[in-house]
Design a protein around this nucleic acid. Structure first.
Length: 119
DNA sequence: AACGTGACAAGGC
DNA sequence: AGCCTTGCCACGT
């Protein structure tokens, strides 16, 4: 279990863990959208849960939460919060260029290895 | 067990 | 090029 809820560890492999298990696979210098994460976690259409899961990540993990952005190529955290600037800073350290507040997804979107199971 | 919430996404204007 | 509305549904209370 990767995250916990204040005091108690939440379930076993719930949706959150499935989501986080995908997030940890995002490589350096790449980003993924919430919807993309949800889909890869087997929760297509549940982009909100992806964001919700990330919201519950405790500090001190090795989860590259900063590599997850929304479909507009923007950081979803409120600009007034530290997290926003932290995320932007971390992304820029990974050589990801911002056009204003946006990231060009056509350049930086993570293309996960497509699992071909045909035999 | 019902209800409101939410680091989203897509469409309409 | 934005803002608003609607759909989505697991979580927490």
């Amino acid at each position: 279990m990767i995250y916990k809820n204040k005091k108690k560890y939440i379930k076993h492999p719930g949706s959150y863990d499935r989501i986080l298990n995908v997030v940890v696979k995002i490589p350096y210098g790449k980003v993924a959208t919430y919807g993309q994460i949800a889909q890869l976690a087997g929760l297509e259409g549940q982009s909100r849960l992806a964001g919700y899961a990330l919201h519950h990540i405790p500090p001190g993990t090795n989860i590259p939460w900063h590599r997850v952005i929304n479909a507009k190529g923007m950081i979803s955290l409120p600009k007034v919060e530290e997290g926003y600037h932290l995320q932007k800073k971390m992304l820029m350290k990974e050589r990801i260029r911002f056009k204003g507040e946006k990231i060009d997804l056509s350049l930086y979107r993570w293309n996960p290895e497509i699992k071909i199971r045909s035999g």
